[in-house]
Design a protein around this nucleic acid. Structure first.
Lengths: 207, 207
DNA sequence: TAGATTGTTAATCGATTAACAATC
DNA sequence: TAGATTGTTAATCGATTAACAATC
């Protein structure tokens, strides 16, 4: 039975379930079970069933889950069954790798604008869609005119907070932040952090 | 008082505390409080005090924490007060960005070997230290001979599991995985995942 | 001293797991 | 039918928070 308020931590696991389902589809599979999914992801089958139960009943007793059906349901729940336009700020090594990454398109995201302040970047085409890099000064206006709500920050730490502020003021509600700094944003704006150093330092304690 | 077993989730927050302390040091500050740290990081002061209490008593009532001292303590706890040698697999766009990234050195990590299978990469120098890219076939032997315990995977998803297996067999105990796939590794090996698509999909639900 | 802030306790809150009736 | 697996409940487990004595 669908519950009213879904824990953040449950939402956080759904993209991982979605990714696993895409692999099963690629393998040509039709049906899976909470047991199989759990084994693949290293979590308990009970947790998967409980997580899914927040949104509805997607399986069949004795059989399991129709992979394509569950895949579609999760895409709809996460709202990645349509395309989100994204603004990318930072066209350095990392920004270039992000812009060149082909993995966003099939997953609900398309980079529509790229910004940097370096003279040698501005005006040049970049990424898989050959988007012309704009000066950061145009960030706010472009976000507004394109109606963009998702931003990616791939700048040095020093610039990240100001970029976030500009993004938020222009209407961005979700920020993927590669800069190694905790951003301060209004509570109605979501931020996800990607910092390889933090990832590595989370493991060395155990070595 | 120092406790015997530390929750994973506590360890996971320490690198973020460490990062915040580095910013305070860069600002020339001497003393901070759990309140100030919490405000900056968007978590409660109680949580910070509780987290730190697992490892000892680092503060002074009425005063707070000596920033440099706490910074040193956290570096020691996380074992990033010395340098970890890292093997990087994948010299594509992403691998190149990682190899060129200057942020690892000051945080306890140095990339010591880079691997790829592309003919046009092998034998060429790469990254800030101009490391010669080796064929992936040499991964296991190089890890063993250099005594490397930390690996970074920046390959396509299809190759990632095999790379992880080779790394683990050669002695790697911590893997930072950029490939969009859940890895299967022995329970004494730690894995941290970085997938921008997962990050983005964790936010769209709320938009 | 008076004010501030720690470290810790106990209570609260939330997440995970085990178990099983329902049922395909 | 017999076997399998879901969705859900209740119990367990773990994390967070509020509060405050201790004390700098």
């Amino acid at each position: 039975m669908a519950k009213r308020v879904i824990p953040d931590i449950v939402i956080g696991r759904l993209p991982v379930y979605l990714r696993a389902l895409q692999f099963l589809i690629a393998e040509g599979r039709q049906i899976t079970s909470s047991q199989e999914l759990g084994d693949r992801l290293g979590i308990s089958s009970a947790q998967i069933r409980k997580d899914l139960s927040h949104f509805g009943e997607f399986g069949k007793q004795g059989t399991g889950y129709d992979i394509n059906f569950l895949h579609e349901q999760l895409r709809a729940i996460l709202k990645v069954n349509s395309m989100w336009d994204v603004a990318l700020v930072g066209a350095g090594n990392l920004g270039k790798a992000i812009a060149d990454y082909g993995g966003f398109k099939g997953k609900g995201f398309v980079i529509k604008a790229i910004f940097d302040n370096k003279k040698d970047k501005i005006g040049k085409p970049m990424g898989i869609d050959n988007i012309t890099v704009q000066p950061v000064a145009e960030l706010g206006e472009t976000i507004k005119s394109l109606g963009i709500t998702v931003g990616i920050i791939a700048t040095p730490a020093e610039e990240a907070q100001a970029i976030a502020r500009t993004m938020v003021e222009a209407g961005v509600k979700a920020i993927l932040n590669y800069a190694p700094i905790t951003l301060t944003v209004p509570s109605n704006v979501r931020v996800q952090y990607i910092d390889p150093v933090v990832g590595l330092q989370r493991m060395t304690y155990y070595l």
